[in-house]
């Protein structure tokens, strides 16, 4: 049983780490602001979420730790998605347009990279 739990937990942890990594790479490599924020929110939601689930399997039973982790998961899901939403909206409002095709207006892409 322990072993099964361990394996499951590790699967979650590793996948979580993978998403964090991809999120980070995306943050660096994506061309414009909106695709970057997409990558960043992957880190927050999927990455952190999976790691938290993995940790829950590690916590060993329904002690004090488990509910805390659940709460953290809940809050982070709620907060980070909302935050991403707010940031994207703010960017849109302040006049930053998403790059629909790479040929369009490269100058804006540059300006977003300064942010």
């Amino acid at each position: 049983m322990e072993l099964v739990l361990d394996i499951i937990s590790w699967i979650f942890l590793v996948t979580g780490c993978f998403f964090c990594l991809t999120g980070a790479v995306g943050l660096l490599r994506f061309p414009d602001f909106f695709s970057r924020i997409h990558a960043a929110s992957i880190t927050d939601t999927l990455g952190a979420g999976l790691i938290l689930i993995g940790l829950m399997f590690q916590s060993g039973g329904w002690g004090l730790v488990m509910p805390k982790l659940v709460l953290i998961l809940l809050f982070s899901l709620l907060a980070s998605t909302t935050a991403s939403h707010a940031i994207a909206k703010a960017a849109l409002k302040s006049g930053l347009k998403p790059e629909v095709s790479s040929a369009d207006e490269p100058s804006e892409g540059e300006s977003s990279s300064k942010l």
Binding site: L78, A79, T82, H85, A86
Partner: peptide, 15 residues
Amino acid sequence: QQIILRIVAKMMIPL
């Protein structure tokens, strides 16, 4: 006008 923010915040603030 930020409906999503308002709703989420309404849930969060008491917490």
